[in-house]
Amino acid sequence: MKRRPGKGKTRNTGRRAFLRSLGKAAASVGAALVGGAGMFGHSSTGRAAVAKPAPPEIPGYDWNKHRWGYGIDANRCIGCLRCVEACKAENDVFLSAHHFRTWVERYVWLDGEERPRVDSHADPGNIAASGSEKQFRFDNRYRDEKVYKAFFVPKICNHCRHPSCVSVCPTGATFKTDDGAVLIDHSYCIGCQYCVQACPYGARFFDPRTHVTEKCTWCYHRITKGLKPACVEVCPVNARIFGDLNNQASDISKFLRENRVQVLKPETGNAPTCFYVGLDKEVS
């Protein structure tokens, strides 16, 4: 059937408006049912009606005063992997090369090759160089090659502002805190691993010991005590930067002011709060 231009558009808008009003009605009914506290946590209409609840009871810490951000200067990274080992020690992460909350990738273009060769500490060659899956080091496999360009890129959970992992979680086990961290409530995690699939950055893994999903917490037990995450604490070249975006004098604010930064995979719309300097077009 031939459609008249303009007509279809009007019809579509009508349908959308109808669905939207239906959603709003359902939301308000729902809100009324549970006493207005906001049965639909994501619904702005439900939450606007009540005062902001008191922040979680963390001694000496008010999450309303902070908005954390993370920076990575790939130009500085020397690939010593102290961050990966520190993270494991600090957070009791499963000690294997294939389970990690943060990692470092090596990008190497050899002379005449179009695509970079990429490996991380979990690469078999690097495991062999370390001699153990409990310690990490990069081997020197390109020592005698003609290298056109090469660098390291530290990776970590991006603690996105629109985290797709949180969107897919069926139980509310993973969530975004008001101070910016994406965390996992292990007592609510059912281990379905939808979030592992949903994360565009591969930042999550399934812990074979506890059968729940694991990820970077920005060392939430450290940052709420005024410390830096372990990976930032140990980095000997300041390739990792952490701080409060609310504080203009913080390391991260300085980093964002003084550098032209970018994020990984901006096309996903995840809006990471992990900002990079020194990436190349192939890094994603």
């Binding site: 805190t177 008001d178 965390l183 372990a230």
Partner: peptide, 25 residues
């Protein structure tokens, strides 16, 4: 505490903030 801050258990952040830092600086 569920829904206190959003679609998650409101007590969870405080629980995750517990723990002694290993790296003391």
């Amino acid at each position: 505490s569920f829904y206190r801050y959003g679609h998650y258990r409101g007590a969870a952040p405080a629980e995750l903030a517990v723990g002694d830092p290993q790296f003391r600086g």
